[in-house]
Amino acid sequence: MSIDECQLVDLPRIQDPRGNLTYIEQNRHIPFEIKRVYYLYDVPGGSERGGHAHKELKQLLIAMSGSFDVELDDGSSRKKFHMNRSYSGLLIPQMIWRRIDNFSSGSVCMVLASEIYSESDYFRNYDDFLAAVRNKRNDEAQF
């Protein structure tokens, strides 16, 4: 996977004086079936989350409240996104290292995931991730 495949997705937004509404439909607004939803909140100032990659899982991250930064790394390039809109999601395919930091007070990061939790899907060590990326690129170069 390439960092270029990570992208911001504009979600439908229905504006109303009584309050706005945004909705998400699997395989329509995001290119996968939603199998798990979780959210990060009450993150202490100066803390970071993430620090891992997934072998198969795809995600959409949304700043439901407040803001935070997401740094993405595909093993050769890095890109940073500032998330602060509840109607915009960051699509992250598999095999992308992510780190989330700079959480504002009261921020909430909601994650829609393509797979249920499985520890075996994680790369938690950056060097192991880099080795897997190199191996995958070598395999693809042979074909």
Results as ranks from 00 to 15, higher is better:
R36G: 05
Q59K: 14
I34W: 01
L72E: 04
M83R: 05
D73Y: 12
R78S: 02
V37D: 12
M83V: 13
C109P: 00
Y39P: 01
V108L: 05
I62F: 05
A53T: 13
L40M: 09
I100Q: 10
S107R: 06
P93E: 14
S88T: 15
S47I: 01
K35P: 05
R36P: 09
R85V: 03
N84Q: 14
D74N: 04
V70P: 06
L61Q: 12
L72Q: 08
K58S: 11
S67A: 15
R99P: 00
G66L: 10
D69C: 14
I100Y: 09
E33Q: 14
G89H: 08
R98A: 12
F103T: 12
W97S: 08
R85Q: 15
K80L: 14
D73T: 09
D69A: 10
F81R: 09
S105M: 08
E71Q: 14
G106N: 06
L61D: 03
S105D: 14
I34Y: 06
I62M: 00
S47G: 04
Q94S: 15
K58R: 15
L72I: 08
L60T: 14
M64D: 07
H82S: 15
S104W: 03
V108G: 07
H52Q: 13
G46E: 01
R99F: 07
L60A: 04
S76D: 11
F103N: 02
Y38Q: 05
H82K: 08
Y87M: 00
M64T: 15
I34E: 13
G50M: 08
K35H: 12
I34M: 13
R78K: 15
V108A: 03
Q94M: 02
S104I: 11
G89S: 05
G66V: 11
G46M: 12
E56C: 00
S104Y: 03
G51A: 02
H82D: 14
Q94L: 00
G50N: 07
V37P: 05
S105P: 00
Y38R: 02
L72H: 04
V111K: 00
H54K: 08
S77N: 12
W97D: 01
K55P: 07
M95I: 05
R98L: 08
M110L: 14
V43M: 03
S67H: 12
L60G: 05
G45I: 04
N102E: 12
S67V: 10
S67E: 14
K35W: 00
R49I: 06
N102L: 03
E56L: 12
M83D: 12
V111G: 03
A63P: 04
D73A: 01
Y87G: 02
N102W: 02
M83N: 09
R99Y: 01
S107A: 15
I34T: 10
V70C: 13
G106C: 01
L60P: 09
K55E: 03
